[in-house]
Design a protein around this nucleic acid. Structure first.
Length: 426
RNA sequence: GGAGAGAUGCCGGAGUGGUCGAACGGGGCGGUCUCGAAAACCGUUGUGCUCCUUGCGGGCACCGGGGGUUCGAAUCCCCCUCUCUCCGCCA
């Protein structure tokens, strides 16, 4: 969340940013500032009363030790009145602080100055495009048909076992998934990311830390028996490693990567756009996360974008990079680049990665700080993450784009992971 | 699932209801010594909120979380959460 200090000092900037993000209740900002003023004056008064109370209590202690019981009980009488007043003030202060916090968590991050205004993905800004769009014949099949034809993916089997949106990969399909995971992890670790294999269930505090809770509770599967949530992305456990941590400046940037299955309820989505692997409830993803010094986060963002670009290039997929407009930007993000690859049979661009800088928004929730030996005070770090990469749509594009009358050609970089003689899936 | 133990600062670990923001040890940092380092010795070492006369200033809160008792709680009582050990079950 934004810090109250930032909102107070940059009211105009915040309001402008919220406008670009199409935030529905900008009047919350002034309510927050008013309530904070109230909180401050209550705090001052409460602190004064507490100081007086502490003074009297010490005095009573001294008198009792000196054996002056009489005088002690006189002082005690004075404390009882003070105590009542203190309780009232403390309660009011508590209410103010609670309101303030409830409102603060509802304020999304404000966008970076470069973020274009706009409402939907139609207003996103194309940054660049790469790779050649393959020319397929008219009878080219979408990936869901290829999946059955070559026995790679079985959607009906998933429906039987679990329900819609839980595809089963089998045979070469399962092997291709494994190849992609291994390839991505290898590339990420070569680029300096430390590999993690985190828990897939997280507690409430973790969900709050990265911003999924309390607002987007409905997007996660909730295991009510133990009050745990299935992760919607590895971002949640991997970023929460640093919850309540004060790092040393010299340890930055921290670069982590993790493969995990991801679970998303995505309630209410159905139809043609979500056929096959385009949108599922459980999918595999390899994530990269960076924690940086505030002055370094935009360099890190570009570094992550280049890294992801290299991955899609190596997979020989036609791709484009778009910068999300204000309205399309996630709740916690200041700047996001989406990567889309072209699935040539569906003739559609599919989002396969979202690379974001959250600046200090998550860090503030996480209480993730760092200390520079030069400064006395610790300050909030910046967090970033990106998919490198999400598998289902990559799989969809590979199957569709590489289909030939003889079979599906496996991208060269994946061949070493596919076993001998499997350059072509027949 | 059953039984028990515990939760204190960066770590380990004390703590009779007032002099405890917290002993002691370790670690870190600074210094003395040294050509340099180690050792030794000395000093220092939490987080957050807040105020103003912005000073290397003051006040307040924080000993897992929340309530309670008390003039006063790390310390006593209640509830919750978490961790550990043993048993059971199990990949």
């Amino acid at each position: 969340m934004l810090t109250i200090q930032f909102i107070r000092n940059n009211r105009a900037t915040v309001l402008k940013g919220l406008r670009i993000k199409n935030f529905s209740q900008p009047d919350l900002i002034d309510k927050i500032i008013d309530r904070d003023n109230e909180r401050r004056s209550l705090q001052v008064r409460t602190n004064e009363l507490q100081a007086e109370m502490n003074r009297l209590n010490k005095e009573i202690g001294k008198l009792i030790r000196a054996g002056e019981e009489q005088k002690a009980s006189q002082v005690k009488e004075r404390t009882s009145l003070l105590k009542k007043e203190l309780e009232t003030h403390a309660r009011d202060l508590q209410h103010s602080a609670t309101d303030l916090n409830d409102w603060l968590v509802q304020i999304p991050n404000i966008p970076h100055p470069s973020v274009p205004a706009g409402n939907t993905d139609a207003d996103n800004k194309l940054i660049r495009q790469g790779g050649a769009i393959p020319r397929l014949t008219e009878d080219a099949l979408p990936h869901w048909d290829l999946g059955s034809k070559y026995r790679l993916i079985d959607f009906d089997m998933g429906v039987k076992i679990t329900g819609g949106g839980f595809p089963v990969f089998r045979g070469k399909g399962a092997r291709l998934q494994r190849a992609l995971i291994a390839y991505f992890l290898d590339q990420n670790t070569s680029a300096g990311y430390e590999e993690f294999l985190p828990p897939l269930l997280v507690n409430e505090a973790s969900g709050f830390g990265t911003g999924q809770l309390p607002d987007k509770e409905g997007q996660m599967y909730h295991v009510t028996g133990d009050n745990l949530y299935l992760i919607p992305t590895a971002e949640v456990p991997v970023t929460n490693i640093y919850r309540d941590v004060i790092l040393q400046a010299k340890d930055l940037p921290i670069k982590n990567t993790a493969y995990t299955p991801c679970f998303r309820r995505e309630a209410g989505s159905y139809g043609k756009d979500v056929r096959g692997l385009n949108r599922v409830h459980q999918f595999d993803k390899v994530e990269i996360v960076q924690i940086t010094h505030p002055s370094d986060s935009y360099r890190a963002l570009e570094e992550m974008v280049s890294h992801v670009e290299k991955l899609v290039t190596n997979l020989e997929l036609p791709y484009r990079i778009v910068q999300l407009c204000g309205g399309d930007l996630g709740f916690t993000s200041a700047l996001t680049y989406d990567f889309e690859v072209f699935a040539a049979a569906q003739k559609k661009w599919l989002e396969v990665s979202s690379v974001s800088n959250f600046e200090s928004y998550q860090a503030n929730r996480l209480k993730l700080r760092f200390r520079d030996p030069a400064d006395k005070k610790s300050q909030l770090a910046h967090t970033l993450n990106g998919s490198a990469l999400a598998l289902p749509r990559i799989m969809a594009a590979i199957l569709e784009n590489n289909q030939t009358p003889e079979g599906i050609r496996v991208p060269e970089v994946l061949c070493p992971f596919m076993g001998p003689g499997n350059e072509l899936i027949r």
